[in-house]
Structure formats: C-alpha cells, structure tokens
Design a binder for these strands. Structure first.
Lengths: 229, 229
DNA sequence: ATTACTACTAAACGAGTAC
DNA sequence: TGTACTCGTTTAGTAGTAA
C-alpha cells in the first residue's frame, strides 16, 4: 500500500482535499488541477484516472469538468499520513534506532540469568515470547554505536523487576523489543550484568540465534531497536 | 518551495524521520534506506545527495554508511506538511470552493446598497478593501453550482450587520472573501437582496470588474471562494 | 469547453562497476 | 563492506489532437 510511485498520488489527493474533495463532490477541471500540481493538463488527467482506478477517488466526467470526491479509502490514506507525521513530530524519542556489533563469546553467564524463573516469567509476560536460555553478545565497535547505545539507556524500556533469593540479589533489567538482522523478533537487554561496559549489548530471542542465523564469532549483526511510544 | 518533483524528497525525509534522523544523527546506509523506500541503492544514494544539496539534510559519509541528520529546514518541511494535513482533516469546512456563473446585468440596485455608508464602513473594516460601488451579478447555470452555493450559505462568513434609517430597514449581509478569475481579490456577497433566487451570486471588488476583467453579459466567470477557519 | 488518446521527449531508474 | 559514477533501459511527462 502506498508504495514507491504512489507518492504522486498521495500528493494529488492532498491537492484535491485542499479543494474540499474529501468532504464534498468538487468540480475540478484537469487544467485547474494541473495548475495546482505544477504539471500539464494531460498529467493531471492521467493522475485522476490512476486515482480512480486505485479506488482513491470517485470521478464523474461532465462537459464542464470532473466531479471528484475522495473515497473513504482515499481519506484513510491521508489520515494515515497525518498520524504518521503527528507521531514523528510529537514523539519524544525516535521510533526505532539501529545498532550494529560483532558477535563474541561471553562467559556463559547469559544462560544462568535468563534461566532464572523470576526473570523468565516476566520476559514471557512483557515481551511476548519465551527466550531461548542464552544471550547473544554483541560488541559495539564504532563511536556511533556506543553513543547510540548510551542514548538508548535514556529511552523508556520494558522494565523487568529484580528479585532476591537465599544467596543473592538480582538487579532490574531494561529490555527493548528489537528485530535482529531484519528477520527475528527478539529484544536487546541492557545491564543484565554490570561488568560489561557500554560497548556491549546482549540479545535474547525465542530461538538459539547463533544457529538460527548461522552466526559465528566476529560476524557483524544488525539490530533494529524499537523504542516505546 | 517544495514544487512538483520534490515530493519524492519529502517522502524520503519522512522515511529518514522514521529512523529518528529528525532528532539525532542516524547511521543509515543507502542500501537500507533503499529497502524502506522500495527503490534501488543507487536511487536512495541520489535522493540523499539531492536532499543534501537542497539543505534538507546534513550528511556525513563514513565507510559504514551515512550519518544523517535532518536539518531545521527539513524538519520545517515535515511540520508544514503535518499542519496542512491537520488543517484539512480537522477543519469542518473545505478551505475553498469554486463557483462559476454567467455575467448578467441587474437592476442597478447593487450600487445603491454598496454605497450606503453603514455597509461601506463595515466592508472596508472586515474585508480589507473599499468596494467599487456596484456589484457583478453572476447567474449560476449548473446544478452543481447551485448546490455549491447553497452549501456555502451554511459556512462561516464575514458578517456585515444590518441597520435602519428613517425610511426602512437594511438586512444583514454575509460575505466570503474570494478570488475572481484567479486574478482579483474581492468577495462574494449573499442575500443582499431577497428577490434573487439561489442561482445568483453577487461579487464586490476594489475595482469595476466589468472593465478590469473586460467582461460582458454572458461571459463565464470563475470565483474561488475562501471559507474561514 | 472539456477529457484523454497517441506519439514523442525528458527524466528517473538501476545494473554494472570504480573507488 | 560502504558510496556514487556511467550509461543503457524504463518510466513519467507533454504536445498535438480527436471526441
């Protein structure tokens, strides 16, 4: 929907709406529309035919011009664009940010923490998936990625509460839903352990990522982190 | 500004904003952007170059991708689009409607009314121009135009108050700022007299329109009526 | 007046590739 | 890996014109 070339159509819809065609049937000649679009009469005519074929407008041709009404589908397209823009402009944080890092092997502590029932229950409840009992460690190599990671810490996160058992205390964890390599839905977790520095992130997912994505140490992995509204 | 071909740029800006580039410097490869745009890597590259040249983004090229930040100018473009859409979607009335009618000669009563000092003062104050002492009468010939005129009556108007003198009462008048033949700023006035039916409108303007636009009886005239917010 | 077809021109696109 | 050039191909745009 509204792919690539359809932008001209959305723009044309916008111009038609400026003439009131989203509320009432408006009489608009192709010549007049052409002027508003900064294009030729023929191009305006073609656009209208395409919009009509696409079901975005209803068009009746009369000797004095076209009677044009934007359909509900067309209005919905305009509203969609509007809400996208509103979201972007009003949102405090970017809707998503991308991090890249190199796979490395940790000390296997990931499994230990993830396996804790108190954490697991919360992961399932708040992230919507049951994490594979292990983490994928990524080393951030560029200044950009390290800086981005530190910005991420200030964003609203899915908060996993800490707890304590007989022997020790387990701290709270911040997670961010994320897409790994544009394929797998998982989450970035920050501060699961304190002894990794700001240049490391850990990933959890419903699968064993190393196998699922055929990863080996040193491979570069891209993670698209979704921030919360 | 933002003419014709620049729409692809606005939509590219939108995509960049979705990656957070309107708030922070984001690392975005041309390949990645291409995916979001549904275009080739080369096209994405070209778009970024064009946006950069146009001052809409600030771009730094690194071996791992482009660091991109939408400039204030670029953000302003997005906000402009947003407010246009918001206005269209939230407004109760279309921002403008177009009427067409044929010039005809009335009984000369227009001058009589327009010349009344009590009306004149209000026209100058509320429309921002001193009307030529006469009206251009237009006969609406199509169902569409008559229907549109009747819709117009329900829209918010510049209200001119009525008054009475020794001999009689002069009723209130509704006017709508309008552009005549895409050239002259004037106003449509409704219900100045009651004995014309719904298929007639009268136009006032700072000039003698018949002379200024070289109009004769039977000529078709286009009027773009601006409704009020 | 209009709309919109056909035939042509101009512009945008993207594969290949250099860096 | 990246970006971005050239250049052949595809697509969009327009002039002329029929209906």
């Amino acid at each position: 929907m509204s792919e690539k070339h359809e932008w001209r159509h959305i723009f044309t819809l916008l111009k038609l709406a400026e003439m009131g065609a989203h509320r009432r049937t408006a009489k608009i000649s192709t010549e007049y529309l052409a002027g508003k679009l900064g294009a030729s009469q023929q191009t305006a005519s073609r656009y209208l035919i395409e919009l009509d074929n696409g079901g975005l407008i209803k068009r009746t041709i009369t000797p004095e011009g076209c009677l044009i009404k934007i359909t509900d589908v067309g209005v919905r397209e305009l509203k969609k664009l509007h809400s996208t823009l509103r979201f972007l402009i009003e949102a405090e944080y970017p809707p998503s940010i991308t991090l890249e890092g190199l796979v490395f092997t940790g000390l296997g502590e990931g499994s230990y923490y993830i396996a804790k029932e108190q954490y697991r229950k919360q992961f399932i409840e708040r992230l919507g998936f049951e994490p594979y009992p292990g983490t994928l460690n990524l080393k951030l190599t560029t200044d950009y990625d390290v800086k981005t990671r530190s910005e991420l810490e200030a964003y609203p996160a899915v908060e996993i509460e800490g707890f304590k058992n007989e022997t020790r205390t387990f701290g709270p964890v911040k997670c961010y839903p994320a897409t790994i390599e544009n394929k797998v839905k998982g989450a970035v977790i920050l501060a699961l352990r304190s002894h990794y520095d700001a240049s490391v992130i850990e990933i959890i997912a419903p699968f064993f990522l190393r196998k699922h994505l055929k990863l080996k140490d040193g491979h570069k992995v891209k993670v698209e982190v979704l921030t919360l509204p």
